[in-house]
Each structure stands twice: as C-alpha cells, then as structure tokens.
Nucleic acid binder design. Structure first.
Length: 389
DNA sequence: CGATTTTGACCTGCGC
DNA sequence: GCGCAGGTCAAAATCG
C-alpha cells in the first residue's frame, strides 16, 4: 500500500481544511482597505492588441474609475515575449499557465479548500493594494475568486491575457454587476477583440476567458487543465481506459476519450494536444473521483508504460495532479499534513484553457515558452502566501 | 489470457 | 427533417 493510501484520509481532518468562508474572512481582516477581487479581476486581463487595448483600455478605465480604483498601466514587455503574436481581433489568445513535468501540486489535489462552494455565497477576496495586472486569477463558483499576483512568483508565471476578455457564456452563469456592465459597454465597442458565437448548447456551456482561472461552475464538475507535456496522456495518478478517439473541429490533433477504470467511478476525461501549440496537452476532466488513486504500478525497467494510463514510479513523470493527493509528493514537504489545504480540482474549471476559439497555427511559428513553473507546488505556495502570508 | 488500445459505427443534441 | 459535430459503443487487434 502506498503512502497515499495509508495516510491521506487521515490528513483530511476538518481542522486541516479551512472552508473558503473562513479563509476569506481571514483575508478580509487582513485586507480591510483593499478592493475585493470580484470587482478587480476584470482588470487583471491584459491586452496585447494595441487597437483593442486602446478601446478596451478606455472602457476598462472608465468602469474601473466608477468602481473607485486605479488600473496600473500595462507594459507589454512585462507580460510575455510572445504576447504580440495574438493580434487577430477575432481570436482569443489562450491563457497560458505552463506547468512543467512533474506537476502534482496540492493546488490541484487538495479536495476541500473550496468544497461546497456552489451552495455558498462567498464574500469576495481582497488582493494586495496596487496589484499589477500580471496575475493569475483563481476563481470559483462565480463569487469565489483568488488572484495570484504573477510577479510574486519567483520565476514569473506565464500568463497571457487580453484586456477584460472575460466572457461568460455559461448557460445560467451569473455575471456580477461589473461583468454585466462591462459586457454591455463592450458590445458598443467596434472591433473588440473577441467574437464567440454560442452556436450550440455545448458551446454555450463554455466560458471564454483569456485569463488563467480556476473556477467551479454550479452543477458541473468539469476541470480543464493545460500542461506542457511530451506525452499525449500525462500521468495524473489515476488509471484510465481509452474508449474513443475523435478529431474535432478547430484542432487537427485528435482528442482521446478516457474513462476511469476504478469500479463504479464514472469520471471521464478527454485529452488533446492544443491546436495552438503541440507542446501543450489539454485535459478536460468530467466528474469527481470518489476514491483514492490506485497504488502506483511498479514499472519494470526497460519496459514502456504501454497503456499510457498514467501509472509510473518515476516522480519526474508528467502529472496533471487531479483527484486526491499523493501526499508523498512535494506537497507534503511544503506543508505539514495537518495544514495542507484540501481541494479537489475536479470541482473547478480552468477557464479558457481548451474551449477557446482556435488560435492561428502558423507553420514555422513556434510559440516560445519562456517561463515554466518548475514544480506545480510553487503555484500553490503563491496562493498560500496570499491567504496566510 | 486479461488488460488495454484502436477504430468505424452509432447515438444524441443542436442549428438551420 | 437533415446535416453536422461531439461523444460513446463494441468488436477486433495488440501487448505483456
């Protein structure tokens, strides 16, 4: 039996899993004079399109001024060297949070930090004063949001954003007042840089956002994660059986469909290479594992993991880190087990990571990944510092 | 021989 | 009603 099987349930004591309401109350106490994130996050998006930046920027500032806060000016150069490649006004640049091989972050594994969020009304989280736009937003349940200031990360999380392109097309997804206000005004702006037609019910379900987000949608258990991986099916700790493969429109790379092989588990996922970059694998998880990951199979030396179904003894292997955690991972080194926040990432969406309009794929145009998080735990560390630091 | 992948056919929902 | 697209089924093939 693995460490995980033996210990992880013991780590899930109520005290070790402060609920989000409590977390945010703590934040409020520490950040009384700061703007709530729910009002702030539209400004976290950056434009890389000079024209739309000009127009949307004015709108953004106008809206922000009405809300009583300032928006720091954007320096394009501080965002990403390939930000300028997104200039097509009808395309939404994909958010990029590049997670390197070996990613098995507690951020993606702890099951409870935002648990039961759909039924709660959560006060908005504050963010630091003067927070720059280069930040990773973590949001949940529409009214739960965390933002990770990008520049707090020692190596800089790669986040490409485009000004206020947060368009929720979720059927029944509630916009907050500012979003609604913004979208109404945005519609008046010609040549705004997003055109997304909700042409079907499935498409309506998607949320287009150029920011990296972690959000749980009411009534859904879908998570979309994009990672850099050479493997077509990166290890996520669970065992999967492939049951289908399909080429979908907008992506020449086939999508593979997997089902969790655990008896009774109905979690499915599909995995495809990003149309924008062959380096990126987009995994969409549907459902929540109600079981622990199976013990890791012992990989015989010299044999390939034939199934591609995610079992490996090699800690350097690619992981997506969904489901419940192996606390033998670096997570347990970052936090004492009793403090390690619990969050099941199958309860969140990473908006805009896969359901975005296709990016232009240019031959000989290689999108450079200039910053890669060496270990996903760093992402969580940043969140943790924001919450309790 | 069991587990897993492959792949064409089929099903379902949606827009027109 | 038809066509399209996404998702699933299931028999055959493959692998260890």
């Amino acid at each position: 039996m693995s460490d995980y099987d033996g210990n992880f349930m013991d780590d899930l004591s109520p005290l070790s899993s402060p609920n989000i309401r409590g977390l945010i109350a703590m934040l409020d106490q520490n950040n009384n004079d700061r703007n709530p994130i729910s009002e702030t996050f539209p400004e976290t998006n950056l434009s890389t399109n000079p024209q739309s930046e000009q127009r949307s920027g004015c709108l953004r500032e106008s809206l922000a001024a009405r809300r009583g806060f300032d928006i720091p000016p954007l320096e394009i150069g501080s965002v990403s060297p390939f930000a300028n490649s997104f200039r097509n006004p009808i395309l939404v640049p994909s958010p990029i949070l590049v997670i390197s091989p070996g990613f098995r972050s507690p951020l993606l594994q702890s099951p409870n930090i935002f648990s039961n969020s759909s039924s709660q009304i959560i006060p908005p989280c504050p963010i630091p004063n003067g927070a720059p736009p280069e930040m990773v937003q973590i949001s949940s349940a529409g009214d739960q949001t965390m933002i990770i200031p990008n520049n707090n990360h020692p190596q800089g999380v790669v986040v490409e954003t485009d000004v206020m392109n947060h368009i929720s097309l979720e059927n029944g997804c509630e916009e907050d007042d500012m979003d609604r206000e913004y979208n109404q005004e945005k519609d008046k702006v010609e040549d705004h840089n997003v055109v997304v037609e909700p042409s079907s019910r499935k498409k309506r379900k998607m949320v287009v956002s150029n920011m990296m987000g972690v959000t749980r949608q009411n009534g859904t258990d879908m998570v979309i994660i994009q990672v850099e991986s050479e493997e077509d099916h990166p290890d996520d700790g669970f065992r999967w059986r492939k049951y289908g493969r399909k080429v979908v429109t907008g992506n020449a790379n086939p999508r593979s469909y997997y089902r969790c092989t655990y008896t009774g588990c109905k979690v499915t996922k599909h995995v495809e290479r990003s149309a924008a970059s062959m380096k990126l694998v987009v995994a969409t998880y549907d459902g929540i594992h109600e079981h622990a990951p199976p013990p890791e199979r012992i990989k015989k030396s010299g044999t390939k993991n034939q199934s591609g179904s995610s079992m490996s003894q090699d800690p350097s292997n690619q992981t997506l880190g969904l489901g419940r955690p192996h606390y033998s991972s670096s997570a347990s080194q970052l936090f004492p087990s009793a403090l390690a926040p619990q969050m099941d990432m199958t309860q969140f969406h990473f908006y805009g990571l896969s359901k975005l309009p296709s990016l232009p794929v240019k031959k000989n145009h290689e999108r450079k990944i200039d910053h890669v998080i060496p270990d996903g735990t760093e992402v969580f560390k940043v969140i943790w510092e924001q919450l309790f630091g």
